[in-house]
Amino acid sequence: MPGYRSDPSDLMQPTAPVMTVMPATPAAAPQAQMLDLETSRVLRFHAKAGTTLHVLEGELAVSGAPRWLAGTVWRQPQRLAAGSMVVLPAGWVEVLATRAATLRLHAPAARPWPRWLARCLSLAAPASASQCFHGEQHK
């Protein structure tokens, strides 16, 4: 057995750390983030367009990015009860817990590279980079 030690002095020797094997996940797949907010706590963050906010428990008041309306800054708060979900636009978001709440934030998946940019990056020779923009190779 590899873990068996017959000599008690060997017990003092450090052993290699145990490695945990985790299932592979694609790099582009974002992870959801779970957050607990106590009553009257505020969470402010910058959301990417398409970020989803799920209210699992409690109640929240969500205000999106400030907008200009008739020369003043205006924010439209939106009340969300348990079980609600909202897709956020890009910008600063303020979340106020009107009752103790548990929420889940899920960022959108990364967008693929535009084809022309992927093609430019895949070219091996720097001289042929002009081919991306002009469609021909200069000699």
Rank of each mutant, 00 (worst) to 15 (best):
G91S: 05
R79D: 03
H46G: 05
P30D: 07
D36N: 07
A97W: 02
D36E: 00
A124T: 12
E59L: 07
V21A: 00
A81R: 07
T98W: 06
E57G: 05
L123A: 04
R75I: 01
L11N: 12
L11I: 04
E38I: 07
H54L: 15
R115L: 02
S128E: 03
P66M: 05
L43P: 06
L123T: 03
V86C: 00
Y4W: 15
Q131P: 00
Q131F: 07
L105W: 09
A109Y: 12
W68N: 09
L117I: 06
G50Y: 06
P17E: 11
A118Y: 03
T51L: 13
M12A: 07
M34E: 09
T25V: 08
A107I: 09
Q31V: 04
A90H: 13
T72I: 15
L123Y: 02
T20I: 14
H134G: 10
R104I: 15
H106E: 10
R67P: 06
A125G: 10
Q13H: 14
H54W: 11
R75Q: 01
L117Y: 02
P2A: 13
Q78Y: 06
A125F: 11
T20A: 13
E136A: 06
P26L: 08
S40P: 01
R41V: 15
T15L: 03
T52I: 01
E136K: 04
V95F: 09
A49F: 05
S130L: 12
P8D: 04
R67S: 10
A107G: 10
S63C: 10
D36K: 02
S40F: 01
V55T: 09
R75D: 07
S9R: 05
